[in-house]
């Protein structure tokens, strides 16, 4: 897997993760309208859990290929995705300071990514003591 593919998969996983907050917010709105037994609340809560499962699937593939500290730094981009969904789906407002904060986060992610050796990959561990086969 090339470095571009790795980062694309990483950011796909992050984007999927950002939908968790969308479903959580939708579930919270449904809860306020109809309580715990509201069918929309139950549906969005299920989607939230399913979304976490999909994210977990991609994340496990991603961290096999990318150092954890780099992957986790890139995960902060979910803040930006969350804001995009908040504005376009829930019609929420962003303050100028929110936008500045997000720009700083993005700058940090770029610095981390550009500082990372693109040929860096994590070898599989096969020796007992150092690792092994599960």
């Amino acid at each position: 897997m090339g470095s571009l593919s790795r980062y694309l998969l990483l950011h796909l996983a992050v984007m999927v993760f950002s939908f968790t907050s969308v479903f959580a917010k939708a579930a919270a709105n449904a809860y306020n309208d109809g309580g715990l037994t509201d069918k929309w609340f139950i549906m969005f809560a299920i989607f939230m859990v399913l979304n976490c499962v999909v994210y977990a699937f991609f994340w496990q593939i991603v961290i096999k290929k990318i150092p954890l500290n780099v992957g986790y730094a890139n995960r902060s981009v979910y803040l930006i995705w969350s804001q995009i969904w908040a504005v376009f789906i829930f019609n929420e407002q962003l303050s100028m300071q929110n936008i500045i904060g997000l720009a700083i986060v993005m700058a940090g992610v770029i610095v981390v990514s550009l500082s990372t050796d693109n040929d860096e990959s994590t070898p599989a561990v096969t020796e007992d003591g150092e690792g092994g086969i599960d």
Binding site: N69, V70, A73, S76, L79, G101, L102, A103, I104, V105, M106, A107, G108, V109, I110, V111, V112, S113, L114, S115, T116
Partner: peptide, 13 residues
Amino acid sequence: GQLIGNLIIITGV
């Protein structure tokens, strides 16, 4: 670079 990048991210958040 990775250390500085992480500090920038924390500042941004």
